[in-house]
Each structure stands twice: as C-alpha cells, then as structure tokens.
Amino acid sequence: MTMLWLSIGTLLLIALWFLSLPLRRARAIHDWQQRFEADDHAEAQNLAVYERRLSALKSARDRGEIDVARFEEGRHELDRNLLEDTEAHRRMPLRRPLSGRLMIPLVITAVMAASMIGYRWLGADGDLALHAAQQDVLNTPGASMKTLVGRLEEEAGTQPDNPKVWSLLFPLYQKIGQPGQAIDALERLIELEGRRVDLLAQLAQIKFFVAGRSLTDEVHALIDEILDKDPREPTALGILGVEAFDDGRYEQAINYWRRALAGFEDSASAEAIRKGIAVAEQRLEQSANEAGLVVD
C-alpha cells in the first residue's frame, strides 16, 4: 500500500513538473518574441513597395500614359493594399512573462484533486485494503484460517458493497464448517453481482448439503432457475445426480452425471463424477442381478 502511494506521488510530481514548464519558459519566450518583433521590418518594406508603385503611377500620369481617373483608381488600390497589409501584420502588445502565473497553481491543485477524487471513485482502494488485510494475516506467524475470516469480516463491515470481500468469505466459511454464514455471504454476493448461474449453482449446492442431501423446495427452485438459464450447468446436474443416487434411481443418476461430466473443467471434479458413475453402474447391475434371482 505504501509503495502504491509512493508511485502515485512520483507520477503526480512528474505531471506537476510538466505543468509548470510553460511558466518556467515564459521569460525566455517573451524575450525571444521581443527580439523577433524588433527585427521585423515587414511594415517598412511594405511602405517602401507602396511608395515605389505610387511613384511609378505618378510618372505614368505625368507622361500622359494614363488619365486622372485611372490614376486615382490606381492610387486607391495601392492605399487599400497597404491598409490590408498593415492590418494583417498588426500585433497585440506583449504581456508580462509572469502575467498568467496564478493559473499554474490553480491547474496543479485541480489536477491533484481530480486525481485523488477519481482514484477514490474509480480506483481499487477497497481491493488494496482487502489485499493488505490478507497479506497481514498470511505474514503473521501462527495465524489460522479463522483469523483470516475475522479480518475479512472486518473488511466486510467497512466495505459491505465490495463483492470481492464476500467472494473470499463464503468459501472460507465452508472450510471452517460454518455453512450458515457461507450461505449468507453467498446471498450477499448474489445481491451485488446479480443472479449469475455460477453463483446460484454454488448456493444450491451448499443448501442441498445443509439439508442433508435433500432436494428441498428452495433447492429445487434454484436448480430450475439455473437449468432454465443454462441446461448444461454441471453443478446443478451433479446435485440432481446425487439426489437420484441416494433415492436408488441409479440409471437417472448416471444420466445426470454424464451430462454434468461434459461441463466440468477441473480434473478433480470430473474424476469424482466418473467414480460416482462407476458406483452407480455397479449398483444398477447388482439390482438387475438381484431382480433376476428373484424371478428365478
């Protein structure tokens, strides 16, 4: 966390250095502009050209090459051109080099305020605090998983709208044997993240096992919602397979588990499903054999 603020401070200092650059260069630019304007003889050159053309016009009149009307027309044209050239080259008086110096601290203050406010609203300040809490526990000798849960609960109290807090808490509650708290944390996460299929599937799974592997009305409603959104969701299909297996409906359990097998990405879950299918097939074969013996 300290390194982050040091990095932010360093970047701000660099930004402030660039922002103050125009002010620090203002004197040199002002002096250069003054020298340029002092050495600029464009107006004198325009006036000299005007005088030469007017003189040529007068000579043409005196020699009788043009009449008075054409002379006056030509002179008015020269006057208009000179006036336009003079207006085009007219310059505003130079301001003092430090005339805008008050804008620099105002801009610097605005940049710093916008950076801090923007980071508070759009940055990951809460996530950094959460990470710092985790690292503090992990670096504490003898710290247990319950210690980590306690620290995360403190973060949940200070930033209850951060979904990452609850996504960390609910699996930890499961690991320390607190399924009720796991359900509460997961339901809070669903409130924040929306009714995502993966979250609903985990909620259905926890409630299913809390109910003693029973397909209660609440669990059944969750599974219906999940499969309506994703008919191939593996966790929901796995739950239905477990319920069918416990009820002795082995063929149905095998069907659910085979459909679920295609959706599991981790090898451990897939291997557990394969073992369940193998056991269900053995039970199904055993049931068939026993039925054959009874008929005989």
Results as ranks from 00 to 15, higher is better:
Gln178Asp: 11
Glu251Asn: 08
Ile8Arg: 00
Asn162Thr: 06
Ala56His: 10
Trp166Asp: 11
Arg213His: 09
Leu189Gly: 11
Arg25Gly: 02
Leu240Pro: 05
Ser269Ile: 04
Val49Ile: 08
Leu148Phe: 10
Ile223Gly: 02
Gln174Met: 13
His76Met: 12
Phe18Ala: 14
Trp257Phe: 09
Gln202Asn: 15
Gln33Ala: 15
Val219Gly: 02
Asp184Glu: 13
Val149Phe: 01
Glu43Trp: 04
Thr10Met: 14
Leu169Gly: 01
Ile176Met: 04
Ala268Met: 04
His131Cys: 01
Pro179His: 09
Glu243Leu: 00
Ile226His: 01
Glu37Pro: 00
Leu23Ile: 01
Arg96Ser: 15
Pro234Trp: 04
Ala114Asn: 05
Phe170Asn: 02
Ala110Gln: 09
Leu169Met: 10
Val49Pro: 00
Phe36Asp: 11
Glu233Phe: 04
Ser167Leu: 12
His131Pro: 03
Val137Gly: 06
Leu203Met: 08
Ile29Trp: 06
Arg27Ala: 10
Ser115Phe: 11
Gln135Ser: 11
Gly64Cys: 12
Asp136Val: 08
Trp257Cys: 07
Arg53Val: 08
Ser267Leu: 01
Ile104Thr: 14
Glu154Leu: 12
Leu102Asn: 08
Glu193Cys: 04
Gly126Glu: 13
Arg75Trp: 03
Ala260Tyr: 06
Glu73Tyr: 13
Leu189Glu: 12
Arg96Glu: 11
Asn289Leu: 15
Ser167His: 03
Leu94Phe: 02
Leu82Tyr: 09
Arg95Pro: 02
Tyr50Arg: 15
Lys229Met: 01
Gly126Ile: 01
Val107Ile: 15
Lys146Met: 10
Gly276Leu: 00
Leu200Pro: 06
Gly9Val: 14
Ile277Pro: 05
Gly248Glu: 07
Gly180Met: 04
Leu169Ala: 01
Pro163Cys: 03
Asp247Ile: 04
Gly126Ser: 14
Ser20Pro: 05
His41Lys: 11
Thr216Asn: 05
Leu169Thr: 05
Thr147Gly: 15
Leu23Gly: 06
Ala114Phe: 08
Pro234Ala: 09
Leu94Met: 08
Val210Cys: 04
Ala280Gln: 07
Ile206Tyr: 00
His30Met: 03
Trp17Val: 07
Arg232Asn: 12
Gln178Arg: 14
Arg35His: 03
Asn162Ala: 08
Asp228Cys: 03
Ser99Tyr: 15
Leu172Asn: 13
Arg90Phe: 14
Arg120Asp: 05
Asp161Tyr: 06
Ser99Asn: 06
Val68Trp: 11
Arg232Ser: 11
Pro160Gly: 11
Pro234Thr: 12
Arg90Pro: 00
Leu172Met: 13
Glu218Pro: 01
Glu193Asp: 15
Ala156Lys: 02
Arg213Gln: 13
Gly9Cys: 10
Ala268Leu: 09
Leu237Glu: 00
Val107Gly: 07
Leu138Ser: 09
Ala44Asp: 15
Ser115Met: 14
Gln174Lys: 10
Arg27Thr: 04
